[in-house]
Amino acid sequence: MAINIKNLPRKKFVLPGNAACPGCPESMGLRYVGMALGEKAILVIPAGCTSVIQGLAPGSGLGFPIVNVPFASSDAVAAGLAAAKEVVGEDAVIVVWAGDGGTADIGFATLSGAAERGDNVIHICADNEAYMNTGIQRSSLTPFGAWTTTTWTGKRERKKDVPLIMLMHRIPYVATASIAYPTDFIEKLRKAASIKGFKYIHLHAPCPVGWRFDPAKTVTVAKLAVQTGMWILFEAENGRIRLSPPSKPYADKSRRKSLEEYLKLQGRFKGITEEGIRALEKMVDENWETLLKLIEATS
């Protein structure tokens, strides 16, 4: 079921009065969540950029029911909420909207626990690749070579592969998405909402403030991440992995744009050396190789 942007609900879930920075990818992502799930969504949000984006109490800049929760608790709160909704028989989609810290670092044990139990929750990791809300500190999802305020000479470690880790939890649905491909993301959200159990969607969300690029170029940068193969869009239903259409061409390395094209737009990679770029490129190749092998093995 292809999604046509014209047929999506008109109701706005990201409202005037929100406190997002110019060019914020999270407010884009939240708009798509609204378009995909509409009135059914209840959001559980741990500490992070969206704690700020939603605006000041007693008002709200977002049109969803929102439970703000401590950092390491979101998937457990969502599990309880989902259990309660099952008890009362309410048709709600419980969504955790967490950043890379709330997903891959401080929130990771909670995420893994909920996934293993199969709690009826969609976890969306809005991945802006560092702790942006506290001022651009590195996370385990910051890519190799990137400057942050705790890695002044570039991060030495590679990005943790959370989607594959979640795949190995054998949950019914895992997908990656990008804010540059809204219909792909919306389709994935709707699919996830139709499946009972734990669903994981990893949304790539380039941050103009933290990545040091022009706020007008959020979508351009996000697209380049896909076109250079840095970010691969796929989905896995019951463990069967498929490349998503926007990423399909780039399984062929020769069709990928050069990594430099992606890196040069971002101030965070200003200090990366030629050697660093080659190392990053090798990581991209390895990620593709692993994924293509997994696709073959699970098809």
């Binding site: 439970v67 457990a76 599990a79 909670t110 139990r117």
Partner: peptide
Amino acid sequence: AKMIRVESEHSALAATFGAAAGGVRA
């Protein structure tokens, strides 16, 4: 009742809170 066999105490109270915030005795 439903039992959520959580992976830590932090999650135990988080899930209890979540269920209660969802409208049931937890």
